[in-house]
């Protein structure tokens, strides 16, 4: 199996119920690949569990100083504004 088709080091949930869940999983798996996140930090995989996975990602990035809460707030504000703009148009 080529590297591009190898399973990621983080077991996924059996199903993704919404696109954001796949993206959340992909972010977590990519950070595990980079040894920024420890796969043992994540509990049992499951679609609903991805919310807590996301929290783990966020808390780790904040705790390790990769991202500040101000940067996160600002980025979310940008995403909110972008979403609002999409709604208007």
């Amino acid at each position: 199996m080529s590297a591009s088709s190898a399973p990621s080091p983080l077991a996924p949930p059996a199903t993704f119920e919404a696109p954001w869940q796949l993206r959340a999983y992909v972010i977590a798996a990519a950070l595990v690949e980079q040894d920024i996140l420890d796969p043992s930090a994540f509990g049992e995989a499951g679609a609903e569990a991805l919310r807590s996975w996301l929290t783990t990602v966020q808390q780790t990035l904040l705790a390790q100083g990769h991202v500040s809460i101000e940067e996160l707030d600002a980025e979310i504000a940008r995403q909110v504004a972008a979403a609002a703009a999409r709604d208007i148009h």
Binding site: W20, L54, L72, E75, Q79, V80, A83
Partner: peptide, 11 residues
């Protein structure tokens, strides 16, 4: 959804 997008943008 927005938090995922924000985290993806930041990483």
């Amino acid at each position: 959804v927005l938090r995922v997008k924000a985290l993806e943008a930041l990483v």
